[in-house]
Write a protein that binds this DNA or RNA. Sequence first.
DNA 1: CAGCATCCAGTATGATACTG
DNA 2: CAGTATCATACTGGATGCTG
Lengths: 158, 158
Amino acid sequence: MKPGNIQITTPSPVRAELAHKFANWQTRKPDGFVCPVRDALDRIGDKWTMLVLIALADASMRFSELHRAVPNISKRMLTQTLRELERDGLVLRRVFPTKPPSVEYELTDLGCTLFEPVGTLVRWVEQSHGPIQAARQRFDAAAPSARGGQVILATDKQ
Amino acid sequence: MKPGNIQITTPSPVRAELAHKFANWQTRKPDGFVCPVRDALDRIGDKWTMLVLIALADASMRFSELHRAVPNISKRMLTQTLRELERDGLVLRRVFPTKPPSVEYELTDLGCTLFEPVGTLVRWVEQSHGPIQAARQRFDAAAPSARGGQVILATDKQ
DNA sequence: CAGCATCCAGTATGATACTG
DNA sequence: CAGTATCATACTGGATGCTG
């Protein structure tokens, strides 16, 4: 096929699987193209959803507990995020008609299943954090002017 | 503590692990709070990164091949996405000084490692797609006016 | 071919104030 | 307490035109 003598040696079977699925998603519809990955990322990829979910991993919580547990989230965003999660059946909302009212949020079974993929993702980040940082430094150091970065070019060039 | 007699029965160990980590991320810094999950989602959670990555799972590709392979992406976004990936060391960019120039993109070893978490995520989406759809329909059908949805209120009361 | 620069619109999020 | 409503803004991404 192509010159295979590069240092790409990962024989991951997942890779082929993904490539195949990707092809399928494409050939479906010439205009629509709804890919499950995009679908997933639209759901959990926003700024707060994962944080709320993980906060709820510990225990079910009331609104204001969550508000305290998730750093810097606004009530507006917390409400919105919880509504989405409730709508998707990942979180259960239970209202207790006390006075003043109290509301508890907890993960559903479906919501709990999210922890497998998320756990995998977290482990990946923890492992690749170092290499990525290194790669960035290399990149930023190597091509300062090539990308319009505001760098003070001295007389020397790397 | 709280009424625990609900149908939440998942005994996932990952759950406790995540909860614990979350607590750690929080107690770190009162202001910063950089959570690896957010970090990861910032990296792969945007509109195109995953698509490009998966497109490259099949084989290394030239710029215009990618442009064709990823549906509806603009050159602007493709370039931008590839730069980020290159910077993070997930993708390797190789320029061939032909005329006109040609550039090949391929996954690095580090980039390939992403397929494990992503594969897990994809599998999760495929499995939970049905339940989520169902939950949504239930939710939307059950509480049309309760969520500020634009429902036609006969008496015009708000 | 493989980009980059510019402009612009839509959306995601934040700040603030008000309510049952 | 647990939200809702409104306004302000920052950022993302799309369209377009220009280059070597």
